[in-house]
Design a protein around this nucleic acid. Sequence first.
DNA 1: TATTGTTATACTCTATAACTATA
DNA 2: TATAGTTATAGAGTATAACAATA
Lengths: 156, 156
Amino acid sequence: MAAQNLYEELARQLTAVGTVKRGLARNLPPDCPAGPTAVLHLLRRHGELRMSRLAELLAIDMSVTSRHVAHAAERGWIARAPDPLDKRSRLLRLTPSGERLLAEISRRYVDTLAAALQDWSDEEVGQLNSLLIRLRADFGDCRSRGPLPATRTAPA
Amino acid sequence: MAAQNLYEELARQLTAVGTVKRGLARNLPPDCPAGPTAVLHLLRRHGELRMSRLAELLAIDMSVTSRHVAHAAERGWIARAPDPLDKRSRLLRLTPSGERLLAEISRRYVDTLAAALQDWSDEEVGQLNSLLIRLRADFGDCRSRGPLPATRTAPA
DNA sequence: TATTGTTATACTCTATAACTATA
DNA sequence: TATAGTTATAGAGTATAACAATA
């Protein structure tokens, strides 16, 4: 349990990360904004997925996920095959065209970050990754457990 | 200079931070969205500011800053005094009402983060803060120096 | 009746461009 | 002429609610 000013600073820094995200997004192909890009990224990492699982991994509402997927599918980057186990669902996967696009996007991401973070060691980048992963995990747990479970700070 | 997969992971994690930001924003007063909140936060930290300097600190366009400031000023959280040195500018500062609102918002931020990050030590939160600050600084430097300055990776 | 996914609507954040007032 | 700031417009991301098809 950290000091109050550390939390305030963290809240500020988290909102300020948007600057970096916008900087990265500026390098994306004009046809493929950040939302659909994240979809491609997760399909490469996890293989075939259903909408509901993809939305869960993105941590955004399925309605939003549906639009990102539609955007990518209209351009041939994603294929939607019928799910033999449930006719309501479709199984999403990257097409070769989608794989090529994602490779190009990854290359641009890496170039941009490599240029910006010249002075960072592997260990430092890995440390930031680990902390961000843990942040998301703990924050997600907190939300799924409900607001303010009052575990230690006795409310009265 | 870190390995490629570390950069790809960082890009993914940065886009995914939005989940946490949205979680924090859900606890804001309905009248005060995240944009104006950041304005209040920076005015408390830096004291009296001009629009241009505030936009610089927020790292967003002045037109956007202007709208956030107008939102806060309309509700009495910010006062805009004429700048004696330049009649085009106004000096922005928190009002007592704005200070009270920000104190309440900070309290909610801290409560939420304290609940989510129960297992984090002071040092770990501080480490994440430091890395995020450094990330923004290096990324901003990179952008202000122009794209791909080619300092070490000789292009040909 | 419950669940998967889509679509319609609305809100927030941001950038670009046009504009006003002052330097 | 250049700069500080405002406003209009447009684009991206998200959430909620209503809906269709299937379990």
